[in-house]
Each structure stands twice: as C-alpha cells, then as structure tokens.
Design a binder for these strands. Structure first.
Length: 419
RNA sequence: GUGGAUGUAGUUCAGCUGGUUAGAACGUCGGAUUGUGGAUCCGAAGGUCGGGGGUUCGAAUCCCCUCAUCCACCCCA
C-alpha cells in the first residue's frame, strides 16, 4: 500500500462517524445547559504562546510539540492543548472587558508528538471548557460537574474523580522548598526517573511507581496551604458533595501543566488501559496575566473524545440507532433510472431519506442493498412499470407491495410513510 | 526516547519441527427464485504471505536488515 495515515493518526470511517456525531451532540447539549458557548480558535498558533502559556518546563513544550517554520519565517505550532489559545482569543478580542465572566467550550483536534499506545494518539480530539473571571470554588465545581455529567450522560460508568489542591503562589513555594529539602538527600537512592523529575517538577517524584514506599514521611501540601487555599479547597469539596459527585482526594495528583493553581482534578475510567484519564483540569489563576491580560482567575478542563469512545466500546455502551432509509429506489433499465432520479428528488424535497441504485446490479442485489440500509420502502421501477406508467412500492417491514400510478405517487407514499 | 509483542485474502485468523496448487470464517459478487431483501444451500472472485537481503535443491515457515502496527514505560486527553 502506497499511502497510510501517519503514525499516531487515524481515520474516522463512515461506520464510526455516527458514534462521533452522537458524542458531540451530547457534549454540546450538556455544555449549553450550563450556559457555555462554543469558541473555535485556529488549529495552529504562534509557538511562543505555548512556551509561555503551557510552560517551558513541561513535557509538552520540551518534547511534544509539532512546530514548524512557515514561509513568513514565523515559528508555528499545532495546538497541543486548548487553554492558551482560548485565553489568547479572549484577550485579543477583549471579551473580558465586555463581560467580566466568560464561559466557553470547544471540541477541537490537538497534536502532540508522543509514542502512540492504547488511548494515546498524536492527533486527538478534546472537549474542553473554561470559566474565566470567577475565583469562586463554585466555578471549579461547575466545570467538574460539566465534565462528570457529560460522561454520565454518555452512559459511562466506573468513573473515578480524583481531586487535589496545588496551593497558590503564596503557599506553594514554601511547600516546594520543604519538599526539595526532603528529597535531596534521598536522590542517590532513587531511580533515574525520580532524579529527572526532581529537576523538572519535584512534586511529581512522590508519584514514582518504583520508589513509592520511600516517601511515607514526606511533607504534605496540606500542611502548608494558606487559609485562602484551604478554604477554597474545602468549599470545592463541600459543593461537590452537595450535588452528589463522588470524589477521592489524591495528594499525588499533579497535573503536567505549569499554570495550575489550587484545584487540580482528573476523571478516570476503569474501562481503559494504562492511559485511563478521560479528562483532567484545574484552576489557573495566573495564566491570564501571564499571557498579558489583567490578573484574572480561571478554571477549566480538557478531555479526550477518542478515550470516551474507547471506554464506551470497552464498556459495551449502546449508541442510538442510525436513521433508517425511507425509500430505496430500485431500477431496471435506463428509462427507469431517469424516472427514479426524478422521483428521488421529489421525495428528498419532502424531507425523506432516499437512495437510488447506482451500480446497475441485479434486482436481488438491489433488494439486498435496500435491506442492508434498513430501508422502510422500496420503490421498484422496471420495464413493466415504465410501460404501464406505474411504480411498485414494497413495504420492507410488512413484506407487502402494491402498484401505484406515477402521477399519484408522491401523494400515495406520503400517506404510506405517515402510518 | 526505552522495552516487549505482532505483521498471511476487504476483515478476523489458521498454516506442525522449511517440501511444491497458501486455507477457514465473515464480508463481496453470482446462482437456487428468466424482476424482489433478511434464513438456508451452491458457486465464484479476491493474496507480490509488510518490504529488502541471505541460508537452502526448495522459505509464509530459518537468519539479518528495514518499515509498520499494537502494548507498556515516560507522560498525558
């Protein structure tokens, strides 16, 4: 085979696209119920937006971006995540000046140069949402609720919401300093990954699978939280409880993006493999300012639609049935084909789903095709019908058929379809 | 970037320690029903055995290289 979809990308074939459309429609309905409005930003951005927004210490920026130079000598990057472009667009168009609160969602492709595996692609599609402008813990909860309830609405079960707080620029540095002091003497005894993580993001070291048991006496973020952060975190938990969203506290949950403050969360499915997060997000109270706006709080999430579909498949979730074909026009002979074209056009104008044979197959094959399409009625036009100026209509469910004169065809079948 | 597994019809797979015409199921097409679907029966088409090189009288099968896919690490959606 000559051409193949490049590594880590895949095609959504007709057999799967109805599943996608269904998921997308559920997402849009949920987002709109909460009052989120869609935002569409370009598929690529100036590279610097991610270096500054996502953070230059993150894996995404250090080794996963699809970056290239365009003919105008600009450094361009295919977006690896959705939040920085959304903030950029809000600032560029002064959305936050028009209204101090902005709630947006998006369904968009993301690109990361990673080694593909189950649930991880180089191009994947994220459903994300952001609330910008509100410092309220209820904004955190609204965003979590949108994600959680969307997943539930799709029929996903075995969901696990993990929750943590990362503190703020006031209290996190103190914890970080303490943790670094605690870890430093242990480094020679820790694995190479730990040593690597220690340099990039010390909070991550505690999450190591190899050395996990060596950190029993490690200092905890909880002991260092300032009162504002502590209250905020408590309020998030209280509100989640009020709306009956179950969660577990996970002190090791440290998201891989630099901009998170306070709340961090992740929803995982037990129906997925190693990459089990359906979505994750958190609060980013410093990001807007970092990208050149006034200090403005924000909170949001990103979630992977390919993973939704994977989890739904693994879990055996049933998708709604596809629409059936109302009329299949089976034809024999040239005149019949022309007549069929005419009839089909009229039926579609009336709003029916209507297909016509395009391969000149045998009548048997055409009937088989009609059956495959789950057709309600077959309109048969052969040489006999042409001679007599009629059409044979077969009811595929009732197995009955009758002959209808051409001139009253549309009226007749309109009636039949209403039954 | 690291490790492991796998590449044979459209699809899912079989093919024993190398032996000559590479099989099955499903799907497709045709027939049983000269113009009628889903069930059944019969038949047909469809394969450079991922690619290249080597060993051998002989390679889908053994060796080397390469490419791709999958899974895991890392990290994330």
């Amino acid at each position: 085979m000559k051409f193949k979809a490049v590594k880590g990308t895949s095609d959504v074939l007709p057999a799967e696209s109805s599943g996608w459309q269904y998921v997308e429609s559920v997402i849009r309905r949920q987002a709109e119920k909460f009052g989120f409005r869609e935002i569409r930003t370009p598929i690529f951005e100036e590279t610097a937006l991610f270096v500054k927004g996502t953070g230059d210490t993150t894996d995404i920026v250090q080794k996963e971006m699809y970056t290239f130079t365009d003919k105008g000598n600009r450094s361009i990057t295919l977006k690896p995540e959705g939040t920085p472009p959304v903030i950029r667009a809000m600032l560029e168009h002064n959305l936050l000046k028009e209204n101090p609160l902005a709630k947006v969602y998006y369904i968009a492709p993301m690109f990361r140069y990673e080694r593909p595996q189950a649930g991880r692609m180089r191009q994947h599609t994220q459903f994300g949402a952001e609330i910008v402008g509100s410092p309220s813990p209820q904004a955190d909860v609204e965003v979590i609720s949108l994600l959680f309830h969307t997943l539930q609405e799709l029929g996903l079960s075995g969901l696990k919401l993990r929750l943590n707080t990362l503190g703020c620029p006031k209290c996190r540095p103190q914890y970080r300093e303490k943790l670094v002091g605690y870890l430093k003497p242990k480094l020679p005894n820790l694995c190479e990954y730990c040593n690597d993580r220690f340099l990039r993001n010390p909070l991550r070291v505690l999450d190591c699978k190899v050395d996990q048991d060596k950190f029993d006496d490690a200092p905890e973020m909880g002991q260092f939280l300032c009162t504002e952060c502590r209250d905020h975190f408590q309020a998030v938990q209280d509100n989640l409880s009020v709306i009956s969203i179950p969660f577990v506290l996970d002190k090791k949950l440290v998201r891989g993006l630099d901009y998170y403050t306070r709340t961090a969360f992740e929803v995982a499915s037990r129906h997925l493999g190693a990459q089990d997060a359906l979505g994750g997000g958190g609060r980013y109270d410093g990001l807007v300012e970092e990208l050149g706006g006034d200090p403005t709080p924000g909170v949001g999430f990103g979630s992977g639609i390919e993973r939704y579909l994977l989890a739904m498949k693994n879990q055996g979730v049933k998708f709604p049935e596809e629409k059936r074909t109302d009329y299949f026009i089976a034809t024999l002979g040239n005149e019949a084909k022309i007549k069929g074209m005419e009839i089909g056009t009229q039926l579609r104008l009336k709003g029916y789903i209507c297909e016509q044979e395009l391969l000149d197959r045998s009548l048997k094959a055409q009937m088989r095709e009609a059956n495959r399409l789950n057709t309600r009625f077959v309109i048969l036009i052969g040489e006999d019908e042409i001679k007599k100026g009629v059409v044979t209509i077969k009811d595929m469910d009732g197995h009955s058929q009758r002959v209808v004169p051409l001139n009253e065809l549309v009226e007749k079948i309109l009636g039949a379809a209403k039954q």
